[in-house]
Structure formats: structure tokens, C-alpha cells
Amino acid sequence: MDLSLLWIPATLAAAAAQTARNALQRDLTQRIGTIGATQVRFLYGLPFAILFLAILVAATGEALPRPGEGFWPFVVAGAVAQIGATALMLAAMRERAFSVVVAYMKTEPVQTAVFAIAVLGDPLTAASMVAIAVATAGVIVVSHKPGSLTGGGLRPVLMGIGAGALFGLSATAFRGAILAFEDGSFPMRATAALVVALAVQTAILLVYLTLFDRRALTASFREWRASAGAGFLGALASQFWFIGFALTSAANVRTLALVEVVMAQVVSRRLFAQSVSGKEILGMALIVAGVGGLLWSAA
């Protein structure tokens, strides 16, 4: 059986789990602050990632994969880049509206494609590149509000684009780490890389919070039930992201994930009975067209 297209359901599952995690994190932010809610995905996600790995080892009897040359630089670079991306995203959102920051950040698939080619030499066809550009343009159209992308100065613009670049770099680096294992099946390599990445991120953030924001750390312990739920969903989403990265270019994975924007728009309109503007319809049509083109080129 051809398993190469399993990155498609894996990516869709990752997007769904991430949406649920974001909902829990939004609630946690009100109670323990932005930094405290952010670190939950790493600190509370790590035990679940270890559990996923233990279950996989027990079910398959497969040995843990051996890190090859380049594994540690890739996994550390991915871990640090993801933390930096989150920090830039939150900083930009303090200065600009959420939807505006999203518009800048969602240039990520295009930037990821550049990193994938430059760093890993991942092959991307001309059709794939066009599809990525079309889907990214669709997100910007959906998120854009008249005058919002030019008002407020250059600082939040650079932070939003920088966040997208770092998220793209982290996705590329994590794929590089997965490919750098010397052996192992793709689920084993993906899960092992996830455990190592979360361990690195947890260590960095524990040191940072202990030194600079102990209150946020203790607050997350106090809200351990909600934090554990967000951590589980975060680890589940990351598990599927990493499986996608193990099977195809990070640019393909991050572009397909843009369907989350369409889902969110549809759900919000259904729940709140709000009308959909022509601009939003155009943007969603571009996203669907771009994603459809990507899947066609990958088939």
C-alpha cells in the first residue's frame, strides 16, 4: 500500500487538534497570562509525547531510531525557532489586531518553501509553488481589513512576517531532524523527534520562567487540569504535524493546513449568523483553489 499520501489526513488531523488546543489556550490566557498559557503546550505536552512513543515501541517492538549527523543542530534549531516565533507572534498581537497579525504570519508557507529548498533541497514543482502562493494570497485576502495593513507603523509588520519566517524555519528544521535519523519507520522517527524537540523546549522555558516569570509557572501548576488538556491536544497536533513532515515537504504540510482558516470562517458564520463579505468569499475560494492545486500536484 502506498503510504506517501498519508501526510494529507495527518495534516488535517493536526489542524483540527491545533484548533481545539488554541481554544483551550485562549481560556487559559485569561487565568494565567499569555506566557503561562504559551508554555503549557511544551511543559504539559512532553509527558503525552513520551506516552505516544512508549505506546508505539510497545505496539511495534521497534527500537528507537539512532540520531545521525545533523540531527541535533536541526532539532535544537527547530525548537528555538518555534519559541521565537511564538514570542514574536504574541508581541505583534499586543500592537495590532489578531486578524492583521494572522495575515502577516500566513506568509509562512511561502517562506517555508524557500527554506525547504535552500536547507533541505526538498523538490517542489512549479505547480506546487503556484498553489502555495495562491493559498497564501487567499489567507491574506480573508484576514485583511481596509487600511489595517498599512496603519500602525512598520514594527508590527516586521514582527508578524518574522513570526511566519521562524515558524517556517522551525517546520523545515523539524523535517530535517526527522530525516537525519539513521533508521526507523516514519512514525517512529516522527515521534522520537517530537519527544526530543519538546524536551529541549521544556528545558529552555523552565529555565526562563524560573528566572524571569515564576508567577506564570506556578499559575500553570495551579491550573493543571486545563493545562493538561491543552498539553495533550498540543502534543497530539504536533504528533500529526511531525508525521506529515516525515512524509513530504514542510511547505506542503503548512499549505494544506491553511484549510483551517476556511473552517474557522465557516463555523464562525454559522454560529453567529454573520454575513460573509465578497472579499472573504474570494479569499476562501483562493485558499481552496491553492490547496486543491497542491493536492493535485502531489497526487
Rank of each mutant, 00 (worst) to 15 (best):
L179V: 12
Q18L: 12
L198P: 06
L179Y: 07
A10R: 07
A250R: 04
D122G: 02
A118R: 05
V134T: 11
S4R: 13
L88W: 13
I140Y: 09
A59W: 15
T248R: 10
L271Y: 08
L51M: 04
V75L: 08
P156E: 03
M105V: 14
E62I: 04
V261H: 09
P109T: 03
A79E: 06
G162F: 01
L233Q: 02
W7V: 00
L5D: 09
T150G: 12
Y104G: 00
E223D: 15
A63C: 03
F52G: 00
R269W: 14
L247G: 03
Q82L: 11
A177F: 14
V141L: 01
E182K: 11
R189I: 03
R94D: 09
Y104F: 15
L6V: 08
F212W: 14
E108K: 08
T38M: 14
R21V: 11
Q82M: 12
V114L: 13
T86V: 13
T210Y: 14
Q265M: 09
R31Q: 15
A131W: 04
V288Y: 05
L233C: 14
V130D: 08
F167Y: 15
A126K: 13
A197L: 10
L206S: 12
A13Q: 07
L43P: 08
F221E: 10
R254G: 07
G138C: 01
G78K: 05
A16N: 05
R155G: 03
F272C: 05
A91F: 11
L124T: 02
L12H: 09
L198D: 13
V266F: 13
T19C: 07
H144C: 03
F74E: 08
G231P: 11
L56R: 00
M188C: 02
L124C: 03
A87L: 15
F242I: 05
L211E: 10
V57E: 01
L282T: 11
F71H: 02
S220G: 06
I178K: 01
A63D: 13
A165I: 10
I35N: 10
V266E: 03
A77N: 08
A163K: 07
T60H: 07
S275C: 06
V40F: 14
A59M: 11
V119F: 14
V142L: 09
A165K: 06
N252F: 02
G176S: 09
W241E: 08
L295E: 13
T86L: 12
T107M: 14
S275M: 10
Q274T: 15
A219W: 13
G70H: 04
A103Q: 04
T136W: 06
T248S: 07
R214Y: 07
A177E: 08
L51R: 00
T34F: 12
I117M: 14
P47M: 03
G164A: 02
Y104K: 01
L56E: 01
